[in-house]
Design a protein around this nucleic acid. Structure first.
Lengths: 231, 231
DNA sequence: AATATAAGGTGTATTTATTACACTAAGTAA
DNA sequence: TTACTTAGTGTAATAAATACACCTTATATT
């Protein structure tokens, strides 16, 4: 990494922590960098914000260019502004996260050639990352762990139809702890935000489980109620 | 505001929402700007981040220069990056908040002359603010409203010794709703994070109330426990 | 056809937290 | 002494969280 690089003054960048759930594992999207610094390293998808675009738009564009993923809604979660986090100059980066449904989506094709590939990587098996991206990932993971206890974000990660065991498993992976099956089901079903389908799991070599759907309408109602606390 | 101003490319800035509680009112600190653009307008204390300082340090420095307040611990809560939020160029601003104990602290003296004064202003009676500072304030207020339901931030705003009624009143102001006196007391005392003092309120023209202190040690223990959820 | 395997699916009792609700006690001021 | 103002207190009902173990059902194997 001792090449001569241009120096620049101040730029903003965006970095994205994109979560997916596949084969029972929580994964994030990493790119292999095709540019100095940190050429050939793994990194979070991220790049520099243009002069004339808002940071929210920049986040969407950058994710698209580096992974081919389009129209993904992301939320900002933290801004990293240490002085030496980028070797070429002062770069303050705004970190975004999103959760997406993998549905067997496999490898992704970067549109720009700034990344050579984009690969889903299990969070329990991450390689060393460029810049301070480990720190950014860790904070993003904390964010969703925290968020899952008051918002049904799990449904964004699962396929449209899922079993209660899959749902529980996802919660366990995000919370990093085991949950009690009966209590978990009681609680989930009590919220009333699940629609039981007339359909069962297929292709498993054991008793097939019932499939459920997330009911957005009922969730909206529930949430409305929860915003108006009792006294 | 039709003066000729220098244009610049990209800069980062910091804006601070500093909460205080005084005379039964929740207040924030505003400065009167002494520079274009928005000269003579009210604004959140904020300024530009230097090349060689981290954003956390910048936040501390800027608050000091504009208000004379020193060593205030602040938390970042959101970054505002719309393209046209600043008339002179592209400015992305990282917003911080803090809560401080007023203890009769009155007016504050800006150290830099970029602000002509710094004044505590009730949140229910804010003037029109420069830039997008209303938006920033609103988001900061939401942030503490949300935070108060899982962290005892109220104690940072109250004097060291306080009555339960004062504590309740502060909760009511932040949550913007009335609370039941008996339930509030039961709950607070149950947490076990209050130390009852052998002392009473003074100088009131009615029955004096007992004074309490916040017990940080017990809170630390409680918090530890809460981080390890049941199953 | 019988058996083994592997996950699916279910209920109850206990404890803890939340809510609703109204009167007496104590100190100060007139 | 009286009026005023806030302090301070308890209980019953309801709802939520927890701990805990066995039978059922579909598939695969012999």
């Amino acid at each position: 990494m001792k090449t001569t690089l241009p120096k620049f003054d101040s730029v903003f960048s965006i970095d994205c922590v994109i979560f997916g759930f596949d084969e029972g594992e929580l994964k994030i999207l990493l790119i292999e960098r095709n540019e100095e610094p940190f050429k050939d390293w793994w990194a979070l998808p991220g790049y520099i914000v243009e002069q004339d675009e808002s940071i929210d738009n920049a986040a969407e564009r950058i994710l698209y260019e580096l992974t081919g993923l389009r129209g993904i809604y992301m939320d900002q979660f933290y801004t990293f502004g240490d002085v030496n986090r980028h070797p070429q100059g002062r770069v303050i980066t705004v970190a975004y996260y999103a959760m997406i449904r993998l549905n067997g989506t496999k490898d992704l094709k970067p549109v720009s050639n700034y990344a050579s590939k984009a690969v889903w990587t299990p969070v329990n098996d991450l390689p060393k990352l460029a810049f301070d991206h480990e720190k950014i990932f860790t904070r993003g993971f904390e964010k969703i762990r925290n968020k899952i206890s008051y918002q049904p974000i799990a449904f964004e990660l699962l396929p449209e139809k899922f079993t209660l065991t899959q749902l529980q498993h996802l919660y366990e992976v995000i919370l990093t702890k085991k949950l009690d099956k009966r209590n978990f089901r009681k609680k989930m079903l009590n919220y009333g935000i699940l629609k039981e389908l007339d359909e069962k799991q297929k292709g498993v070599s054991y008793r097939a489980a019932k499939l459920y759907k997330f009911d957005r309408r009922k969730y909206a109602k529930l949430f409305q109620k929860e915003l108006t606390f009792g006294k």
